[in-house]
């Protein structure tokens, strides 16, 4: 429950919090703003402003390496998102049937990717796939992404599921709906906002990953973060400014979409 607090009261009680708040937002946004601004810089490398131009956008949209890395990232993120969401829906709808110990254990294992440092997960996965006789490449990449996207998809779907009102179902059951029909026709549609926001977050998490992927890629499976990491190591680069700006836009779009979707739950 949120309380409306009269403006005057807040000011008197906590002077300075407004300054801290605005300063923090500036701190969080200024660096990204600078990058976005320089993505429109006409200069070749120079950090000095040399006039407005969209030529680096044209360059990036025609850069075969960036395009193929982006395509690879989209494919991996797409498959990992669909797979992790499908698994997460099945898991959420059935997890209450597990024994208490089982559900605690399963929950801990499945949530581990959030807590374990990425570099550890990366080398651990590499060690594991080599042990079972796989070599780095597309399949291990997709499987690993699915595993670490899963908790993000699952949390959203579960939050939605926990918030469902049983009243909807009683009436449906009263009207003689079978269990399968109940799941397909009523539960899943009601879960939809959670599924979509879970999918969006899983997608972003997959698109974001550098560390784990770096141990699992091979020729032809270079993802976008791996490619831009290579560019960044060389220093300031106008193409990276453009890609960074586009990724920022993606984050904005996903956040707004998620807010809208989860916001609807309350009303």
């Amino acid at each position: 429950m949120k309380h409306k607090v009269p403006y005057a009261l807040k000011l008197r009680s906590f002077p300075g919090v407004g300054i801290a708040g605005v300063a923090s937002l500036v701190f969080l946004y200024f660096p990204m703003f600078v990058v976005a601004a320089f993505s429109f810089n006409d200069g070749n490398r120079a950090l000095a402003w040399q006039g407005f131009s969209i030529r680096w956008y044209e360059r990036v949209f025609h850069d075969a390496a960036i395009i193929s890395a982006t395509r690879m990232s989209l494919i991996v993120a797409g498959i990992a998102t669909v797979a992790s969401v499908v698994l997460a829906v099945a898991y959420v709808l059935a997890m209450d049937r597990l024994s208490r110990a089982g559900s605690v254990l399963a929950g801990a294992i499945l949530a581990a990717p959030i807590v374990v440092p990425e570099v550890v997960l990366g080398i651990a996965t590499l060690s594991f796939i080599r042990l079972i006789g796989m070599t780095p490449g597309f399949l291990p990449l997709v499987l690993a992404h699915t595993a670490f996207c899963f908790p993000f998809a699952m949390m959203n779907i579960r939050a939605r599921y926990d918030g469902l009102n049983p009243a909807y179902f009683e009436s449906a059951a009263d009207l003689g709906a079978t269990r399968a029909a109940l799941t397909w026709k009523i539960t899943l549609p009601l879960l939809a906002p959670g599924i979509v926001s879970g999918a969006l977050l899983a997608f972003v998490v997959s698109m974001d990953d550098y560390m784990i992927s770096s141990f699992l890629t091979s020729a032809g499976t270079t993802t976008l973060p791996i490619y831009i990491f290579g560019l960044i190591r060389k220093g300031v680069n106008p193409s990276v400014n453009v890609v960074a700006t586009l990724l920022l836009l993606m984050a904005i779009a996903v956040t707004v979409a998620t807010t809208v979707l989860t916001g609807r739950k309350k009303s």
């Binding site: 099945a90 059935a94 399963a106 499945l110 499987l143 469902l164 049983p166 179902f169 109940l182």
Partner: peptide, 18 residues
């Protein structure tokens, strides 16, 4: 017990992945 619940076996794929 939650509406639309599935059999416990449906957690298997996720657990296997984990």
């Amino acid at each position: 017990p939650k509406p639309g619940q599935l059999s416990g076996w449906f957690t298997t794929p996720a657990i296997l992945l984990g």
